[in-house]
Computed example of a mutant assay.
Amino acid sequence: MQVNNLGEQQSILNKFISELRDVSVQSDRMRFRRNIERIGEVLGYELSKSLSYNNVDIKTPLGTSKCNIPEEDVVICSILRAGLPLHQGLLNYFDGAENTFISAYRHQVSETEFEIKVEYLASPSLDNKILILADPMLATGRSFVNVYNALKSMGTPKEIHLASVIGSEQGIAHIAEHFPEDTKLWIATVDKELNDKGYIVPGLGDAGDLAYGIKLQH
Rank of each mutant, 00 (worst) to 15 (best):
M1V: 05
M1W: 01
Q2V: 07
G7P: 06
E8N: 14
E8S: 08
Q9G: 02
S11K: 06
I12T: 12
I12P: 01
K15S: 14
I17W: 11
I17E: 07
R21D: 08
S24M: 09
V25W: 05
Q26R: 15
R29A: 09
M30F: 14
M30K: 13
F32S: 01
F32P: 04
R34E: 15
I36W: 05
I36F: 06
R38F: 12
I39L: 06
G44T: 04
Y45F: 11
E46N: 06
L51S: 03
N54M: 13
N54V: 08
N55D: 15
I58M: 13
G63V: 07
T64Q: 14
S65E: 14
C67M: 15
C67P: 01
I69F: 08
I69L: 13
E71I: 14
E71F: 09
E72F: 01
D73K: 13
S78H: 01
R81H: 05
G83N: 06
P85Q: 03
Q88E: 14
L90T: 03
L90W: 04
N92K: 10
Y93K: 10
Y93M: 11
G96V: 04
E98V: 06
N99E: 14
I102M: 05
Q108S: 15
S110K: 08
S110V: 07
E111T: 13
E115V: 15
I116P: 09
K117S: 13
K117T: 11
E119L: 11
E119S: 15
S123G: 07
S123R: 07
P124S: 07
S125A: 07
D127K: 12
D127S: 12
N128S: 10
K129W: 02
L131W: 06
L131A: 00
I132L: 01
A134T: 10
D135Q: 07
M137G: 03
A139F: 07
R142Q: 14
S143P: 05
V147T: 05
N149T: 08
N149Y: 02
S153M: 09
S153K: 14
M154K: 13
M154N: 09
G155P: 03
G155Y: 02
T156A: 08
T156L: 06
P157G: 00
K158F: 01
I160S: 00
I160D: 00
H161F: 09
L162K: 01
V165L: 05
V165Q: 05
G167P: 11
Q170C: 12
H174N: 14
H174I: 06
I175R: 03
E177F: 03
H178D: 04
F179S: 03
P180A: 02
P180D: 02
E181W: 05
T183E: 00
K184V: 04
L185W: 00
A188V: 03
T189L: 10
V190S: 07
E193A: 14
D196F: 08
D196W: 04
I200R: 11
I200Q: 10
P202D: 06
L204R: 06
A207I: 03
A207D: 08
A207T: 05
D209N: 12
L210S: 11
A211P: 06
A211N: 07
G213I: 10
G213M: 12
K215M: 12
Q217E: 15
